[in-house]
Computed example of a mutant assay.
Amino acid sequence: MNNRVPMTVGGEKALRQELEQLKTIERPRVIADIADAREHGDLKENAEYHAAREQQGFIEGRIQELEGKLSNCQVIDVTAIPHSGKVIFGTTVSIINIDNDKEQRYQIVGDDEADIKNRKISVNSPIARALIGKEEGDIVAVTTPNGLIEYEIDEVLHI
Rank of each mutant, 00 (worst) to 15 (best):
V109N: 04
Q21Y: 09
R119N: 13
D33S: 05
N146G: 10
S84R: 09
T79S: 10
I153V: 09
Q56N: 09
N2H: 09
A141W: 03
R4K: 14
P126G: 15
E150L: 09
K44F: 02
V9A: 11
A128W: 00
T144V: 04
R38M: 14
T92I: 13
T79I: 01
K44Q: 05
G110Y: 03
D138V: 00
G137E: 01
R53D: 14
E103L: 11
V87E: 00
D77N: 01
H50A: 10
V109S: 06
D111A: 08
E152W: 02
A14Q: 13
V9H: 12
V30G: 07
I34V: 13
I132C: 02
R27K: 15
I88D: 15
L148R: 05
E155R: 14
N46G: 08
I25N: 12
R62F: 07
A51M: 10
N124R: 08
G110Q: 00
K69N: 04
Q17H: 14
N100F: 06
S71Y: 03
I81T: 05
L70N: 01
I96L: 12
G10E: 15
E136N: 07
E20T: 10
S71P: 02
I95N: 01
V156Q: 00
L66Y: 08
I121Y: 00
F58C: 03
L131I: 00
I127N: 02
E18D: 13
T144Q: 04
C73P: 11
V75C: 07
A14L: 13
Q17R: 09
I31C: 12
D138G: 02
A52D: 02
G57N: 02
G11Y: 03
N97V: 07
D33Q: 12
T8I: 12
I96N: 08
T8L: 05
Q56I: 05
G137T: 04
E67K: 07
V93A: 01
R129E: 14
V109H: 03
P82F: 08
I25C: 09
V78G: 03
H158L: 09
I95M: 06
I81V: 03
R4A: 08
I95W: 00
V78W: 01
I76K: 00
R62D: 03
E48P: 05
S122A: 02
I149T: 10
M7F: 15
E54V: 10
A114C: 06
E67W: 10
G61R: 01
I116Q: 11
N146P: 10
E113H: 07
N72P: 01
D112C: 08
L148I: 13
R62A: 07
N97E: 11
V109A: 02
D154A: 15
D115H: 04
A32P: 06
R119L: 08
R129Y: 04
E135M: 12
I31V: 14
L43N: 07
Y151D: 09
L15D: 06
E113G: 10
D112T: 04
A128Y: 00
G68N: 05
I96R: 09
A52M: 03
H158D: 03
K44M: 13
H158T: 05
E54Y: 14
R16L: 14
T91E: 03
N46Y: 00
L148M: 06
N146D: 11
A37Q: 04
E45Y: 11
R4F: 14
R4E: 13
R16C: 05
